[in-house]
Simulated scan of single mutants.
Amino acid sequence: MSFIRRAHKSQVVKFLIVGGLCAAVEFLLFALLVHRLELEYLHANMASLIVAVVLNYLISCRFIFKRGRYSGKVEFAMFVLLSAIGVALNQYLVWSFIEQVELHVYAGKIMAIGLVAVFNYFTKKHIVFMN
């Protein structure tokens, strides 16, 4: 039983590290697009999310999760589908935090990343990779 707990904790730690890396890339790209290229924040959010999702898939397959019971194509399609739901959730949260709650654009983005990370972990672990 303790082996299972250690393995799960190790997987969570790896997920947090990879997620943190991808979140940093996502946030830095978002900031670059908003403040340097003056892209509208929702468009910048979408672009930064796409880059982060692809990066996260590549790293997750390699370092966090073992291949699931699905073929590579099905696995990637499920990853993309669940990531699209996460992207929609992220877009909604960013908009809500900025427009409704009136948080600073960076604070809203950081809060959205944190909340969607929980959704991402559980869907990737229990639906996509099933391990």
Rank of each mutant, 00 (worst) to 15 (best):
G19A: 09
V53I: 15
I59H: 03
N56E: 07
A44N: 07
G20K: 04
S71Y: 11
A31R: 08
E40Y: 06
F65L: 15
I85Q: 07
L21K: 00
L49C: 10
N56M: 03
L55H: 03
E40L: 12
A24H: 02
V51M: 11
G19Q: 09
L55T: 11
I64N: 10
E38W: 09
F65Q: 04
V54E: 08
A31I: 11
L39P: 03
F65M: 07
K73M: 13
F27C: 06
H35W: 15
L58D: 06
V34L: 01
A23F: 05
V12C: 08
G86N: 00
E40H: 13
A84F: 03
V54L: 15
L32R: 05
L16M: 13
A84G: 12
C61M: 11
K73G: 12
V18T: 04
C61Y: 01
S60M: 12
A52Y: 00
K73V: 14
F79H: 01
A52F: 02
L49P: 02
I17Y: 04
A23Y: 02
E75Y: 09
L58N: 12
F79W: 00
C61K: 14
E26F: 00
L81E: 10
A47R: 06
F15S: 11
K73S: 14
K73W: 05
H35V: 03
F65V: 08
G72I: 12
G86M: 00
L39A: 10
L39M: 15
G86W: 00
